[in-house]
């Protein structure tokens, strides 16, 4: 399966989804006015990946900012991962936040309480 790779912009994150090593990364800023279009290929890629996932899928989310439009799409991504985790494949979501960014930590905890996938909160110390 081909990797998904999208370069980041001022309003959209860098995306690297790799089916070979099972590492999925979303990094940067996600603040487009309409996020549906941007997240569609991510959800579709995961849909395809879910038919034959690796034993372990590691998800690295490292967002500096995300808006409420993105928050729903990110939940859609996580729901796909939840479906994979419900199968026999393990999924871990590593949620990164900068040390003084309590809002970002809290956002991760919100998702953790909705999605049945293990989360690991990772503090980035500068």
């Amino acid at each position: 399966m081909e990797a998904l790779s999208i370069e980041g912009t001022a309003k959209t994150p860098t995306v690297k989804f790799n089916a070979q090593d099972g590492v999925i990364e979303i990094k940067g800023r996600s603040i487009p006015e309409n996020s549906i279009e941007f997240y569609k290929p991510l959800v579709e890629w995961l849909e395809q990946y879910s038919s034959s996932p690796l034993d372990l899928t590691q998800v690295n989310v490292q967002l500096e900012y995300f808006n409420t439009s993105s928050s729903k799409c990110i939940l859609d991504v996580f729901k796909k991962l939840e479906a994979i985790h419900k199968g026999k494949s393990e999924v871990i979501i590593n949620w990164h936040y900068e040390e003084d960014d309590e809002d970002m930590l809290e956002a991760g905890e919100d998702y953790e309480s909705i999605i049945r996938v293990p989360f690991k909160m990772i503090e980035i110390v500068e």
């Binding site: 006015e33 309409n34 439009s69």
Partner: peptide, 17 residues
Amino acid sequence: KFILNHQRLSDKGGGGL
């Protein structure tokens, strides 16, 4: 969390959040 989990985005991408 309720709105996040239960309401769909509008076509314009607004989420009511």
